[in-house]
C-alpha cells in the first residue's frame, strides 16, 4: 500500500474508529436522533469548509471566512424585513463579493493569500460592526417566519442537513464536471506547469476565492437562521474548525490533492471529536486547543514536502 492510498484512507478510518470509540463509552451516541443532531451540527462547518477546500486545493488559504460569515449573518438580519427571502441570496452575494476582493488583492496585486484574506477579513469585520453598530440583531417574530427553510425538518431530516447535501452535490459537480474544478487541481499540483499549459491561473484563483466567499456567506445565512440573530462576531469561533475540517479530511495545504468529499469526512471527524469531548465532559475551551493541535498534526501528515524546498 503506497503512501497516497494511505493518505486517502486514513481520514475515513479515523472517522470510523472515533465513532466506535465514542459509542463504546456512550451507547446513546449511536441512536438516530443523536446522529441526526450531529449531522445538522456539521452542516455549517461543512459549508464553510467546502468553499475553502477549493482555495486550499489551489495552494492558497482563506482566513477571512469567519468574518465574511458574520457579515453575511448581519446582512440577513438587516435585510430580511425589507427583502424577505431575497435577503439570503443577497447574503451569499455579499460573501462572493468579499471573495472577489480577496481574489483581486491576491491575484492582481500579487499579495500572498493569507495576508490578503486576513486584510479582507478585517474589512468585512469592520463593515459588519459598522452595519450592526457592534450589536447582535435578534430576528423578530415575523422575520423568524422566513427561516423555516433552515430550521425546519422534512421527513424527519433537519433542513440544514438537506442544505449541506445540496452544497455537497454542487461542490462535487463543480470539482469533477467543470473546467474550473479540473484546472484548480492542475494549478495546485504544479502552478508553473499549469501556467505554461495555457491555463488562466489568475482567473481560477479568483473564482476559488469567490466560491469560498459565497460558501461563507451561505454559512453565515444558515447560522443567522439557526440562532435567529445576526451579529458581527457570530462566526468568530469557526475559522479554526473549518480549516481543520479541510486538512483533517486529507486535503493538503501544498495544493493539488483534495476533494469536497474529504472535507465532508473532515467536518464529520471534527463534529464527532467535539461531541465525544462534550460527552466526556471536556472543557469547551480545551476543545479549541484540541482542534488547534489536530490541525497541526493533520498538516504534518498530509503535507507534500517535495513541493516546498524551503519551509517558511
Amino acid at each position: 500500500m503506497n503512501r497516497d492510498t494511505l493518505r486517502q484512507l486514513m481520514p475515513i478510518v479515523t472517522l470510523v474508529v472515533l465513532v466506535v470509540l465514542v459509542a463504546a463509552f456512550q451507547p446513546s451516541f449511536v441512536n438516530p436522533a443523536t446522529l441526526l443532531g450531529m449531522a445538522s451540527d456539521t452542516a455549517t462547518l461543512f459549508v464553510l469548509g467546502m468553499g475553502v477546500t477549493f482555495v486550499i486545493m489551489l495552494g492558497g488559504i482563506d482566513l477571512s471566512i469567519q468574518s465574511v460569515a458574520s457579515l453575511a449573518s448581519v446582512a440577513v438580519a438587516l435585510l430580511i424585513t425589507p427583502l424577505g427571502y431575497l435577503a439570503f441570496p443577497v447574503a451569499v452575494l455579499v460573501g462572493a463579493l468579499a471573495g472577489l476582493l480577496s481574489g483581486i488583492a491576491h491575484v492582481q496585486l500579487k499579495i500572498p493569500s493569507f495576508i490578503a484574506t486576513l486584510a479582507v477579513g478585517g474589512v468585512a469585520a469592520g463593515v459588519a460592526l459598522l452595519l450592526a453598530d457592534a450589536q447582535a440583531i435578534t430576528l423578530g417574530e415575523v422575520e423568524r417566519g422566513y427561516v423555516g427553510w433552515i430550521t425546519g425538518t422534512s421527513l424527519g431530516i433537519p433542513h440544514e442537513v438537506l442544505i449541506a447535501l445540496v452544497v455537497l452535490a454542487l461542490g462535487t459537480v463543480v470539482q469533477h464536471y467543470t473546467a474550473f474544478g479540473r484546472y484548480s487541481q492542475a494549478i495546485g499540483a504544479g502552478e508553473p506547469a499549469a501556467h505554461a499549459a495555457g491555463i488562466r491561473v489568475g482567473l481560477h484563483k479568483t473564482i476559488a476565492c469567490m466560491l469560498s466567499g459565497a460558501a461563507a456567506g451561505l454559512a453565515g445565512a444558515i447560522l443567522a437562521g439557526r440562532l435567529a440573530s445576526g451579529s458581527p462576531t457570530l462566526a468568530d469561533q469557526l475559522l479554526l474548525p473549518a480549516i481543520a475540517a479541510v486538512i483533517v479530511g486529507g486535503t493538503a495545504i501544498t495544493g493539488g490533492v483534495g476533494s469536497v468529499w474529504r472535507t465532508l469526512v473532515g467536518a464529520l471527524i471534527i463534529t464527532v471529536v467535539r461531541s465525544g469531548m462534550t460527552f466526556l465532559n471536556v472543557d469547551i475551551f480545551i476543545q479549541q486547543s484540541v482542534f488547534g493541535a489536530m490541525l497541526v498534526i493533520a498538516v504534518a501528515l498530509t503535507i507534500d514536502r517535495s513541493k516546498i524546498p524551503i519551509v517558511k
Binding site: 493569507f114 488547534g292 490541525l295 497541526v296 498538516v299 504534518a300 503535507i303 514536502r305
Partner: peptide
C-alpha cells in the same frame, strides 16, 4: 516537522 509557520502558529 517542516510545517509552514502560518499553519503552526494558527494552531
Amino acid at each position: 516537522l517542516q510545517i509552514p509557520s502560518f499553519m503552526v502558529t494558527l494552531g
